[in-house]
């Protein structure tokens, strides 16, 4: 990744962090949502909500293809881009943990590109 690309990752992370601030969808109230349970002075109301759509890709264009294609199924980008500066070996260990322990279905062929991307994240303010 070029130095320019690195700064794009840093700024992009901040820009995209704001993307989640968009409001919630309005949804019709279902029958289940109206149901309640009451006993001994406490009433509990069913809840129907919607979590915000992260809707965000790792920035960086084609350099981010592998990480975008493999990692977003389980988690959004935020916590990845807020890690402290980590070595390539440390990022490799994280990717290994995701695959081996948390069973992320990442193809062997995609691993080097993911680790490359992570090892080149610019840690800004």
């Amino acid at each position: 990744m070029t130095p320019t690309g690195k700064s794009v990752v840093g700024i992009g992370a901040f820009m995209l962090a704001l993307g989640v601030l968009a409001g919630l969808d309005a949804r019709p109230i279902s029958a289940a949502e109206k149901s309640t349970v009451t006993a001994n002075g406490v009433t509990l109301h069913s809840v129907s909500t919607k979590f915000p759509d992260p809707g965000r890709l790792f920035p960086g264009g084609s350099s981010a293809d592998a990480i975008n294609n493999n990692c977003l199924a389980c988690h959004s980008i935020g916590m990845v881009l807020t890690q402290p500066k980590m070595s390539r070996a440390e990022w490799q260990a994280e990717v290994n943990k995701m695959r081996n322990t948390y069973k992320a279905p990442v193809a062997d062929a995609d691993v080097p590109a993911i680790v490359d991307y992570l090892a080149n994240i610019a840690v800004g303010k």
Binding site: G10, A13, F14, A17, L18, V20, L21, A22, G23, L24, V47, T49, K50, F51, P52, P54, R56, H75, S76, G78, M79, L81, T82, P84, K85, V123, G124, K125
Partner: peptide
């Protein structure tokens, strides 16, 4: 050593402004 800045978000149900660490799974 950073990165140290986080967005505040109000986008989560039943929550006021919160410091966004991760949107999915929520932190």
């Amino acid at each position: 050593g950073g990165p140290s800045q986080r967005a505040l978000t109000g986008g989560f149900p039943q929550k006021g402004p919160m410091i966004l660490q991760r949107s999915r799974a929520p932190m």
